[in-house]
Design a protein around this nucleic acid. Structure first.
Lengths: 346, 346
DNA sequence: CATTATCGCTTAAACGATTAATCAATCTTG
DNA sequence: CAAGATTGATTAATCGTTTAAGCGATAATG
C-alpha cells in the first residue's frame, strides 16, 4: 500500500544482503557472484530502482550533468544544436543544463560561473564571436570554427563556403555579392574564405556586412541589393539563411525574380529554407554529428580525470575535429544571367 | 598555494565555530548573533564559498533544478521560451535541465521520466498537441492554451486571434483565408476562434490545414494561395509566422504584391518576421511573461510541499493564468483591395 | 599438511549540507 | 532570589551512494 521509493538499503533488505553488495552488483565493479548479481539486477528493475543522483554525486564528486552555453539563445541555430547535444549527452547518461548569456556583454562568463556553481562536470560552449573561452575549472568542448585556436569541434565552414562557391561558379556566376552580419565571427570569416576559393580566380566579389550597414541606416534597413544587381552582380551569397531570407524577399518585392534574374544562397539549412518559395539553396550543418563529437570528446575528458580532483589544468579535450557540410540545392540558385542581359533590369 | 575548495567545515574551522552555526548564519534559519552572522557571511564570500549542490540535495531532497520539456525542440519558438524560462528560473535559484522528446511518439513520456530520474523538483511542460500531461510524480506547470483543461499558464491565443481579426476587419477585409498546420493543436484552435470573432459576422472565412494538404501533395507543396486570391480572398491570416513566410513568398513569386493585392499576417513574432520584406504583421507572444508566470507558479508549488515528501497528489499548481498577446503591425497587412478590383488579377 | 591466494560478501567510513535535540549561560519574573 | 524563559552556540544524526578495508571459507600451492 505504500510503495517506498526504492533505495539501495531497501533492495539489500529485501534480498538479505548488504548495500555494498547491491551497489557492486549494479555497477559491476566489486566481486559478486554471477547468480547473486543477476538476482539483484532482477529485483532492482522489478522494483524500478533508480540510483539517487544526489547521493551518487555527493560521493563521487560528479553530477552527471553537463552545461550548454550559447552566446545568444535567440540564435536560430540553437534548437538544432540543443536537441543534438541533449540527445548525445543523454545517450551517455548525462543531463544537459541550459546556460544562457542573457544577451548581456559578459553574460557568457556569468553563465559559465553559474553552471560551475551548479556542479556540472563539464560544458559545451559556443563562444560569443570574438571571445575566447578562458581557463575555467572544468573540461570544456568548444564548438566554433576550425580556425579558432584551441581545441574545438566544428563544422568545416571553409569547405562549406568552397562547395557553395564552386556551385555558383559552375552556374556561371562571376560577380558575386557576399553578405554577412559581422566580420568578427570566425565562422563567417571561414565561410567567406571558402566562398572566394570556391568561386575561383576569375570571379569578382564584394562583401557587405549588415552590422555596419545597420549602424548607419538602422536595424532592418534595406541591403541595397537591387542596386547591386543593376551593377551586374548575378548572385547573392549570404552567410546565413536568415540573411538569405532577407535578401530573397528584398529582391522579390523589387520585382527581381529569383533565381531567374539573380541567385540567392544561404547557410545552415534552417527551418524556413525549405518552405519559402523559391526554396533556398544552402549548406546543411550536420548538428547531430557536431554535437556527437563535442559530447564524446567532453565526456571522455571528464571520465579521464583521475578521481575526485577538478580538472588539473583546466581545459582538457580530445583532438580537434571537423565535420563536412552538405550542399542542399533548391530553387533559389540558377544559371547566371548572361552578360548581354546585364545592367538593364527591366 | 593550495586554495582548497571551501566547504562549510573549512569556514567553520577558519572562524572557530561549528559547521551548524555557519550553515545557520548563511541560511538565516537558526539562531545566530547578528555580529557572528555578519562575520561568517563576510568570510564566506571572501573565500568564495558556494554550497555544494549535491550535499544540499541529498539532505533536503530537492535538487534546485527544474526540467523543461517541449514536444519538439525544433520548434522555432523554442529559443524564446527556453531563454525566458532559464532566466526566470535562475532568478529563483533554479537550474534548467533540457528534456527533449526526440520527435518520437511517446518521447514526451520518456523525456519526463528521464527528468524525474535525474531528480528535478518540478517541470515546465509544453505538451505535444493533443496529449495531456498525466499524473507524474512532481509539480508541473503546463504551457498551452487557456482552453486546455487543467492548470495551465499560457498566452491568450484567443484574444490574440481576436485582435488580429479586428485589425484585418478594420482594414476592410471581408473574405479571409485562415491557414494553420494542424487542427489538433489547442493553440491553433484558439487562434482560429479568436480570428473569426474578431473579423465579425460580416466576414467569410475558409480554413486550410497544411498537414492535410501535405498528406496529399507532399511536404513543401504550394498552398494554392494564388487561386484563392483570384477567388476574392483579400487576406491570408496564418496561425504562425513560419506559415506566414511560406504564404508571403508563394504570393510574391506569383507576382501578387503584398500587401497591395493581398495581406498576410502571422503569429508569434519570430526572428524573421521583422527582417523580411515586407515585414510581417504578427501577434507578439510575450514569452518572458509566460515563462515568469509558469516558473513562479511552479516554484511556489515546489516550495509549498511540506518536507521530504514527493508531491502528494501529483500535479500541484497555482491558479491558471493568461497573458495578453500584442499586435505588431508591419507592412504585410494593408487595406483590402476594393470589390471592384476583385476577381480580375492582372 | 601447513601456508597463501582467491572468492564472496560485509563493515564502516566517507562525501557536504541541514536540522532536531541539547546545553550552558544570561535574562525575566513572581 | 530561586525557578523558568530566552539566547547563542554545539553535538550528532541523517540523506543515499561508493569504496577501501576486513574477514571467513574454500581452493590452490609447495
Amino acid at each position: 500500500m505504500k510503495p517506498e521509493k526504492p533505495k539501495l538499503a531497501l533492495l539489500a533488505g529485501a534480498l538479505g544482503v548488504s548495500v555494498a553488495t547491491v551497489s557492486n552488483a549494479l555497477s559491476g565493479k566489486g566481486r559478486v557472484s554471477p547468480e547473486l548479481a543477476e538476482r539483484i539486477r532482477a529485483k532492482a528493475d522489478m522494483l524500478g530502482y533508480v540510483p539517487s543522483v544526489a547521493g551518487r554525486a555527493l560521493r563521487t564528486g560528479r553530477s552527471g550533468v553537463i552545461g550548454l552555453v550559447l552566446p545568444d539563445i535567440g540564435n536560430p541555430l540553437f534548437p538544432q544544436i540543443a536537441q543534438a547535444i541533449e540527445q548525445a549527452a543523454s545517450m551517455r547518461g548525462y543531463g544537459v543544463l541550459i546556460g544562457d548569456s542573457r544577451g548581456e556583454v559578459d553574460g557568457q562568463t556569468q553563465a559559465i560561473a553559474r553552471l560551475i556553481d551548479r556542479g556540472v562536470d563539464g560544458m559545451v560552449v559556443i563562444p560569443r564571436r570574438g571571445t575566447r573561452v578562458s581557463d575555467i575549472g572544468c573540461p570544456v568542448a568548444v564548438i566554433d570554427s576550425p580556425s579558432t585556436p584551441g581545441n574545438t569541434v566544428s563544422a568545416d565552414h571553409w569547405d562549406g563556403g568552397r562547395q557553395m562557391g564552386a556551385h555558383l561558379a559552375s552556374l556561371g556566376h562571376r560577380r558575386v555579392l557576399l553578405v554577412g552580419t559581422s566580420p568578427l565571427s570566425n565562422v563567417q570569416a571561414d565561410r567567406i574564405g571558402g566562398l572566394k576559393e570556391g568561386l575561383g580566380d576569375g570571379s569578382i566579389t564584394e562583401t557587405v556586412w549588415i552590422e555596419k550597414l545597420e549602424a548607419n541606416l538602422g536595424p532592418g534597413c534595406p541591403l541595397g541589393l537591387v542596386a547591386r544587381v543593376a551593377q551586374g552582380f548575378t548572385a547573392i551569397a549570404t552567410l546565413s539563411d536568415l540573411t538569405a531570407l532577407r535578401a530573397l524577399t528584398e529582391l522579390q518585392v523589387a520585382g527581381i525574380a529569383v533565381p531567374a534574374a539573380a541567385s540567392v544562397t544561404g547557410f545552415d539549412d534552417l527551418v524556413w529554407a525549405s518552405v519559402v518559395t523559391p526554396g533556398i539553396t544552402t549548406m546543411r550543418l550536420n548538428a547531430t554529428e557536431v554535437a556527437q563529437l563535442a559530447v564524446t570528446a567532453l565526456t571522455q575528458a571528464i571520465e579521464a580525470i583521475p578521481r575526485g580532483e577538478l580538472s588539473p589544468l583546466g581545459t582538457v579535450m580530445a583532438a580537434r575535429e571537423c565535420v563536412p557540410m552538405q550542399l542542399v540545392i533548391r530553387q533559389s540558385s540558377g544559371p547566371a544571367v548572361q552578360p548581354s542581359d546585364q545592367g538593364q533590369p527591366s
